[in-house]
Every structure is written in structure tokens, then in C-alpha cells.
Nucleic acid binder design. Structure first.
Length: 456
RNA sequence: GGCGCGAUAGCAAAGCGGUUAUGCACUGGAUUGCAAAUCCACGUAGGCCGGUUCGACUCCGGCUCGCGCCUCCA
């Protein structure tokens, strides 16, 4: 039972070997907090939450850090446009992000470092890079000298010359080489800034991750994750900074990147205006439906976030919750998570489609199961759910959805009236009430023990 | 121009050189006052053209189409 992961750097699946089996360390790039996040931002959160859960089964301790970027030109622009202070914006959206991710059943990382709280560490790293001959000061900027690093481009599998040949790169005149990137840049008086050996300024984009990883997780970590679009330039540059800032450590053993969330077959983008914000989706779909939909494809492939995919995810979850409802009275002992039927699939580079297939097979013959089987099935479902981050609701809450108390009272009254109509064999009235409930998105189910209802 | 990914049944999505992936939807049946749910039944799918092989969705080559990255987008 070995975990295998796909490593972007080597472009192949590899057996996972921790640096320190007593403390596995992983870092995932979090959001820039200037807006509500979209479902594409949620994918790495769900994917690496899943990895975190798997690692926690395999190893006694896992330290998971996910940063909050609270210095950025986009934040400054928002502040300029709205008049709201930068601190107010970043605090508000960092909180909103935490709320959204909690609704997707993502566990809170062990460490959530904020960029603004690590300026001394960032400045220190820049000084080390200059001292080691990998960075230079130019017109109040400090730039990383990409030509000083022999294997720059290794992570993203591209050479500097190829990269720059046909690319649309504006070369600032303070750069020695077009590929050099900013470590530190000057701030105008009305812009946020910090005093530094190079004047008042602020860090470049990539710097915070290098500094925070080193501080919280060390110079050499096991796993670094994020969206595919971060491979270049963000992670390539982070790797360059971290490796050149100290001795030539490997920095990260396994680079893992998730594929995009697409809408109508295309990447979400501002120009297409096809963003789907998580909080908006949550008004129509339960967080577990979003999570299930994200897990329905293997994390490295693209996933198209369509109505059909969400609807199918909901149907599947309904059937699992129905199984759990049927098993409500079964008493179980906790099952070790590594015995859950989804576990083996997850060990194979988080093969969630296979994991979900295993879960469906588990429930398939529930009707024919004897007591021992029912006990095993329920234990397995609970353990699998804990691994996948699903089934955190009770079945009754799940089927009730977001129905409030007033609506519930109204529904119950209608069902009572219908029960009387049925007793009177007044089928017309009974069907009329069912239609009325259906118009409220309520589906009713008659059984020998009475009538139950659920939200469509 | 450089680098890379993908094309599987109505939709979604995996593994695998030779046995039914799986889910959702659809259709028929059982059940039900009618429904819903459940149960039973039901799909030789693998872009195109070659090659390797006893045998290819799976390996190799070419083609077509789609998508992504190439300096601050998860």
C-alpha cells in the first residue's frame, strides 16, 4: 500500500517517499484576497485536502501550509476603486475564502501564513540572493538573474532561449535579461510599502512563498501543490529563489498541479466573463455536490463544470445518503481508514473516479445484504466518506436541504392534508397537493410507514 | 514560433495488449391508487489512416480536431 503521485518536474508518476516519515510537509498556493473566489480556485483546495487526508492515514504527522496573498497590485487597485482600506479588503476576503472552503468540507490547513506578516523573511532572502550573486539591484528594483542559474526552466520544461524567442515579453530597461523577474519593487508614497535596503517598496509575486515555506516548513519539503497555471512563471521562479537563496537544496521533492475547471469547454477567464463564484454556486448546490463534481475527474485532467455534471453529482450523493438512511439503525465500530474501499484508488495518484466507482459498488447490493454485510457496508461508507470529505451531513439534513422551519411546517401541513385525502380515497386532491409541493421543489415519497419528503 | 495535454457509448469518466469499468440519463418490467424511491433487465464505446501482434481502445508512426502555458491567472 504505497502512495504514488505524479511529479510535474519529472513528468511521471513516482512512489512517494517522505523526507521525514515523522513529519510530512506540504505547501499549497492559496488565493490573492481581493475578491470572492471562483470554483477554479476551489479545485486545488479540494484536491490537496484529499491528499492531506490520505497522507494523514499513512503518516503520523502531516504539516500542511496554505498561504494567503495579501500584498498585490490587484488588491491595491480594488482599494483605489472602492476607497476601502487594503487591510479591510484582505481581512474580509480571507474570511470569506475560509467560509467558502469550509463549505466544501476542506479541512483548515495547519498553517495559514499571510504575506504581510513575513516581510523580514522576504527581505532576508533577497539579501541572500544578492550576496550569492543571483540577484542585482537596478533602479530601486531587485531582480533575479535567471542566467545565474544553470537549470532555470527545469520545472516547466522550457529553456530560456525558447521561452523568449517567440514570446510576448515586454522587456523593462532595468532588466539585464528579458527573463529576469522582480524580487522587490519600489512603492509610490500612496502605495503600501516597507522599508528595505533598496528603499521603501514591496515584494514581487513569487517571493512570499519561498520565504514562508522556508520559515514554516524548512528548506526542503515533500510536496508543493497548486493549479497548473502556476507552473510557469510562479513555481519556476519560486524554485529558483529558494534553491539559489541557500545551498542548492532540492527545495521540493514532488510538484503537483491540478488541471483547470472549465465552463462550456473553456478555461474560466475575465475576458470571457465565465467565472463561477463558489458562493454563488453554493446558493444552488450543496457544498458536497460541488466537491463531488470536482472529484468526479482525476485531478490532473480538466473538469467541465456544467449543469449535467453537477446534477449527476447530486444524484449520486442522493443515492449514497439514501443508503446511509437505510443503515441508520446499524451500529458500527469505526473502520480503519486504510481498509476503506476507496483507499487503494486514492493511493494511485488520487484516482478519484476509481474511488467513486468503488463506493458505488459498495452500496450496490445493499438490499440483499445480511446484518453482517450491512454493518460492514456502513462502516466502509463512513470511512470512505471521511477520506473523500463526503457524507458530513445526516441523511435527514441532506434531504431537507436548505428548507427552513416555516417551510417545513407548511410542507408537513400539506402532507397531513394529503394523508386525509388519501384515506378518503380523494386521489384528485392528493395529486393536487403533490403537484403543489412539487412546485415548491419538494418531492414526496409514500411508503408503508407514511410519507416522507425531500428537496429536489 | 517554443513547450505540453487531450480525443472513450446521450452526458460524465477510469483501468487495461485478450474477461461487464463505473456513475448519471434513457427504455422495458416488478412494485405503487398514481407517483417517488427501490429491485430486475438493457449499451462490443474508444477521432481518422497505417504499423507491430495470434489478438489493440490500450503499444508505435502519421493525420485531423480541441485545449493550455510561454512574466504576476487555481
Amino acid at each position: 500500500m504505497k502512495l504514488t503521485v505524479y511529479n510535474t518536474k519529472t513528468r511521471q508518476k513516482e512512489a512517494f517517499e517522505p523526507i521525514d516519515a515523522e513529519n510530512v510537509r506540504m505547501y499549497v498556493c492559496g488565493p490573492t484576497v481581493y475578491n470572492r473566489v471562483h470554483i477554479g480556485n476551489a479545485r486545488p483546495v479540494v484536491v490537496f485536502d484529499l491528499l492531506y487526508r490520505v497522507l494523514n492515514v499513512l503518516y503520523p504527522k502531516v504539516t500542511y501550509a496554505r498561504n494567503i496573498t495579501d500584498i498585490d497590485d490587484k488588491i491595491m487597485n480594488t482599494s483605489r476603486e472602492t476607497g476601502e482600506s487594503i487591510e479591510s479588503i484582505t481581512t474580509r476576503y480571507a474570511d470569506a475564502y475560509a467560509d467558502d472552503m469550509a463549505q466544501l468540507n476542506a479541512k483548515t490547513p495547519d498553517i495559514i501564513p499571510f504575506a504581510t506578516q513575513h516581510l523580514p523573511e522576504m527581505i532576508d532572502l533577497v539579501e541572500r540572493l544578492i550576496a550569492r550573486g543571483h540577484a542585482y539591484e537596478s533602479e530601486q528594483h531587485v531582480l533575479f538573474d535567471v542566467r545565474s542559474m544553470a537549470n532555470y526552466g527545469e520545472l516547466s520544461n522550457r529553456s530560456l532561449d525558447d521561452m523568449l524567442a517567440g514570446a510576448r515579453v515586454e522587456v523593462a530597461d532595468y532588466k539585464r535579461d528579458a527573463g529576469d523577474f522582480v524580487l522587490w519593487k519600489p512603492s509610490a508614497d500612496d502605495e503600501p510599502g516597507w522599508d528595505s535596503p533598496w528603499g521603501r517598496g514591496r515584494p514581487g509575486w513569487h517571493l512570499e512563498c519561498s520565504a514562508m515555506i522556508e520559515k514554516h516548513l524548512g528548506k526542503h519539503i515533500d510536496i508543493h501543490g497548486g493549479g497548473r497555471d502556476l507552473i510557469f512563471p510562479h513555481h519556476e521562479n519560486e524554485l529558483a529563489q529558494s534553491c539559489c537563496g541557500s545551498d542548492d537544496t532540492p527545495f521540493v521533492n514532488y510538484w503537483m498541479h491540478n488541471g483547470y475547471v472549465n465552463i462550456d469547454g473553456e478555461k474560466m477567464s475575465k475576458s470571457l466573463g465565465n467565472f463561477r463564484m463558489v458562493n454563488e454556486l453554493l446558493t444552488e448546490w450543496h457544498g458536497e455536490v460541488l466537491r463531488y463534481a470536482l472529484l468526479s475527474a482525476q485531478y490532473r485532467s480538466e473538469v467541465n463544470f456544467s449543469f449535467d455534471v453537477l446534477s449527476s453529482a447530486k444524484q449520486s450523493l442522493d443515492s449514497f445518503y439514501r443508503a446511509l438512511e437505510q443503515l441508520q439503525d446499524v451500529v458500527t465500530e469505526p473502520m480503519p481508514l486504510e481498509q476503506a474501499s476507496v483507499f487503494a484508488a486514492l493511493l494511485d495518484d488520487l484516482n478519484t473516479p476509481n474511488a467513486l466507482a468503488a463506493l458505488h459498488q459498495l452500496v450496490k447490493n445493499l438490499a440483499k445484504a445480511d446484518e453482517a454485510d450491512r454493518k460492514r457496508i456502513k462502516s466502509d461508507l463512513i470511512a470512505s466518506g471521511e477520506l473523500l470529505g463526503l457524507f458530513e451531513e445526516t441523511p435527514s439534513d441532506w434531504f431537507k436541504g436548505n428548507t427552513d422551519d416555516d417551510q417545513t411546517a407548511k410542507i408537513d401541513a400539506l402532507i397531513a392534508e394529503r394523508a386525509q385525502a388519501k384515506a378518503d380515497k380523494n386521489w384528485a386532491r392528493a395529486d393536487e397537493i403533490r403537484d403543489e409541493l412539487a412546485s415548491l421543489d419538494i418531492i414526496i415519497e409514500d411508503s408503508a410507514s407514511g410519507t416522507t419528503w425531500r428537496k429536489a
